[in-house]
Amino acid sequence: MNLTATRRGEVAIRDLSKSFQISGRRLDVLSQLSLEIRSGECLVIVGASGSGKTTLLRVLAGLETADDGEVLIDGRPVHGVGSERAVIFQEPRLLPWLTVLGNISFGLEVRGEPQAHARETARQYLSLVGLDDFAEAYPRQLSGGMAQRVGIARALAVQPEILLLDEPFGALDAMTKITMQEELSRIWREENVTMVMVTHDIEEAIFLADRVLVLPQVRGGRVKLIDIDLPRPRDRSASAFVRQREVLLREFGLH
């Protein structure tokens, strides 16, 4: 839907460190992390809980500031949130008093776009996530999967270069999850957007990722980048897929 050539969405992470003070003790969550994320790629971050994957995503989003190091987007350092990035959270975070259409155009409207135009754009993204019939429904009338589709449409409607996803399907049931992963894979190809996604689901990572970033389980351990070189659309039952899954599980000492 947007094939503007000037869009890039490249991310460079340089020596990023972040620690938290928890009951007087210093907890290093990220230390000296460096990474390049290519334009238009899908990078999936996995790691045990507490490994800092959500923190990394929140730093990229501009919701947290790093203690040290920097994040560059298309060569420019990041300070706070920015219009070239959109975030999809685990919870859909829809405004209950707005209709589905109103929620999708919310991002555009707070950015100062005239409402009529914002709603028109919102309608396109409503179609993209297959919810045309629900434009006037309220969030409480939606199922979990539908609500998350609305969240995705709202993020895409602002036409970000980079889409940051924090365990977006973590709260969905297994069947809905698979449908949503397929949908997201399709949308990612159509929208030509850089995706950075955090998940704890290995299969989800392999299904979607060009590369998987494995954050270390032990403090000070090395991060690992694993290329997922499988043809798309991916088949979860293919032997190459299953092999890849075992490789990744071994990273977690689970196989």
Binding site: L63, G82, R85, A86, V87, F89, E91, G107
Partner: peptide
């Protein structure tokens, strides 16, 4: 969380 969401969109 809703306020944070709005912040992400630059509100």
């Amino acid at each position: 969380k809703l306020i944070e969401m709005a912040r992400v969109y630059g509100a």
